[in-house]
């Protein structure tokens, strides 16, 4: 017989909040690449404003967690769940900041002519968002195995990053006039690479929540 129903209900609500926050962050990454591809400065500006909502959400969730710790003295998996959430919201907020960073680069690029059609950068974004989405599913489903698997997929994002870097480097060598534009795209790719690293941190936290073991999974190349 469940006896701490009120407490566990609150914990489930926080779980719901973290999924909502995850959606906001996924959307920010997706839209930042949309804005880059389509030179959509309005969209870029909106991402920058909306990042405040992501930050606000993070503090809201943090406060709820603190209240639960202070008033409910959570133990065992409940305690690990809350600690895991506290860590994950920091990672999510940071990924949101990377999306905001990409939006700012979009504003910098403005209406400069495109250097080349974007292929690998959108792929990096797609992969990162997919990993992020599944990592939060793994949290919801208490699935440590899935979390470990997702973390290893960071290699794919790293490989794409290498490819983008090499390609842009060759542009710059060929024609130094492209240096500014190429460098900006490298910044974008770097933000995505870091976002995927943050997802592996989320995965480690999910493993901790489910198993009670702290594991560092597949330390990133970067």
């Amino acid at each position: 017989m469940e006896i701490r129903t009120a407490f566990h209900k609150k914990l489930r609500q926080i779980q719901g909040e973290i999924l909502a926050m995850g959606n906001m962050v996924e959307k920010a990454i997706e839209q930042s690449i949309e804005a880059l591809k389509n030179r959509n400065l309005d969209m870029a500006n909106r991402i920058i404003t909306d990042d405040r909502n992501i930050n606000r959400k993070r503090y809201e969730i943090e406060e709820r967690c603190i209240q639960l710790i202070a008033t409910q003295q959570p133990m065992a998996s409940d305690l690990r769940n809350i600690i895991c959430i506290l860590n994950i919201i920091t990672e999510l907020e940071r990924i949101g900041d990377y999306a905001e960073g990409i939006a700012k680069i979009v504003l910098m690029i403005g209406d400069e002519p495109p250097l080349k059609p974007l292929i690998d950068i959108p792929r990096m974004a797609e992969k990162t968002v997919d990993m992020l989405h599944r990592s939060l599913d793994a949290l919801g489903n208490h699935n440590a195995e899935a979390a470990r698997q997702i973390a290893t997929e960071d290699n794919e994002v790293d490989d794409l990053y290498d490819q983008v870097f090499r390609e842009l480097l060759s542009f710059m060598i060929e024609d130094p006039k492209t240096i500014t534009r190429a460098t900006r795209l490298i910044w974008v790719a770097h933000n995505l690479e870091r976002s995927a690293d943050r997802v592996t941190n989320i995965c480690e936290r999910v493993v901790f929540f489910v198993t009670g073991k702290m594991e560092e999974i597949g330390a990133s190349k970067y």
Binding site: A76, S77, L79
Partner: peptide, 19 residues
Amino acid sequence: LFTNPKDKRTEDYITGRFG
């Protein structure tokens, strides 16, 4: 025991899932 109990019955008791 209070962060990562081995036995499900311990887990259920200390997290208030049975009383």
